[in-house]
Computed example of a mutant assay.
Amino acid sequence: MHARDNKSDVGGEGSDEQYGAAAEVLGLLADPTRLHLLRLLNTEHDVTTLTGKVEASRSSVSQHLGRLRLAGLVQARREGRRMLYRITSDHLAGLVDEALGYAYHAVHDIPHHRGDAAPRPGTAHHPD
């Protein structure tokens, strides 16, 4: 899967193809290790470095990177004997950041408000 640079429907209703591609990306992000790896890959890292930063074995990190690479979400380049990995898209990096920001609010029970949307059940609404 490769992201397209088609801005004709950005912000619009979206096509079935766009919804399918988005669901596929979100499915890949649904794994905590892959999400963590993508967050770290805003800069290049090799497998050894990544393994030291996530709670997963080297073989697991390699498998996750392979899956992300096949999906076109990360790219790799060889430097001597090492492979260096990096996220491929600013949009994807933003999506990861947004997901983690949302999760931070959820974990710390910080209300999410959007305009006139009602607060989450169990949270008090304090008018400004």
Score class of each variant (00 low, 15 high):
18 Q>V: 12
84 L>P: 01
17 E>F: 11
105 H>W: 01
9 D>W: 08
55 E>N: 15
119 P>M: 00
35 L>H: 05
75 Q>F: 06
107 V>I: 10
108 H>W: 00
84 L>D: 02
77 R>M: 07
87 I>Q: 01
118 A>G: 00
24 E>R: 15
117 A>Q: 07
88 T>Y: 07
5 D>A: 11
10 V>K: 12
34 R>A: 13
36 H>Y: 10
58 R>H: 14
43 T>E: 14
24 E>L: 14
42 N>R: 14
40 L>M: 11
62 S>L: 10
26 L>A: 13
46 D>W: 04
61 V>S: 04
110 I>Q: 03
12 G>M: 10
54 V>M: 08
15 S>I: 07
1 M>E: 10
86 R>A: 11
6 N>Y: 07
104 Y>G: 03
107 V>W: 03
30 A>M: 09
82 R>V: 06
43 T>S: 14
127 P>V: 01
76 A>Y: 00
18 Q>A: 15
11 G>P: 09
54 V>H: 05
26 L>F: 15
103 A>L: 14
49 T>S: 09
37 L>P: 03
90 D>R: 12
72 G>K: 05
47 V>Q: 08
8 S>M: 12
97 D>A: 11
91 H>D: 07
71 A>F: 07
71 A>Y: 08
115 G>R: 02
71 A>W: 07
60 S>C: 06
120 R>S: 09
84 L>G: 04
78 R>Q: 12
91 H>L: 12
64 H>N: 12
114 R>D: 05
65 L>I: 05
16 D>K: 08
90 D>C: 00
79 E>K: 12
68 L>H: 04
9 D>E: 15
67 R>P: 02
65 L>C: 06
102 Y>D: 04
1 M>V: 12
13 E>G: 09
3 A>E: 15
22 A>K: 08
106 A>H: 05
103 A>S: 08
26 L>S: 09
28 L>K: 12
90 D>L: 07
23 A>S: 14
62 S>W: 12
2 H>F: 12
73 L>T: 04
27 G>N: 11
115 G>T: 00
59 S>T: 13
26 L>Q: 10
118 A>I: 02
47 V>F: 02
6 N>K: 09
71 A>H: 05
94 G>A: 09
42 N>I: 14
32 P>S: 10
45 H>R: 15
93 A>Y: 05
104 Y>P: 00
63 Q>D: 05
56 A>P: 03
104 Y>M: 06
111 P>M: 01
16 D>E: 15
21 A>T: 11
63 Q>T: 09
122 G>C: 01
56 A>R: 10
127 P>I: 01
6 N>P: 03
64 H>G: 03
65 L>T: 05
2 H>V: 11
20 G>P: 03
84 L>S: 01
114 R>C: 04
26 L>D: 11
93 A>C: 04
66 G>E: 03
40 L>W: 05
40 L>F: 08
7 K>H: 14
12 G>W: 07
52 G>L: 01
7 K>E: 13
20 G>Q: 15
102 Y>S: 05
43 T>I: 13
52 G>M: 03
68 L>Q: 03
1 M>Q: 10
19 Y>S: 12
67 R>S: 11
2 H>Q: 10
87 I>R: 01
72 G>E: 06
91 H>I: 04
92 L>H: 02
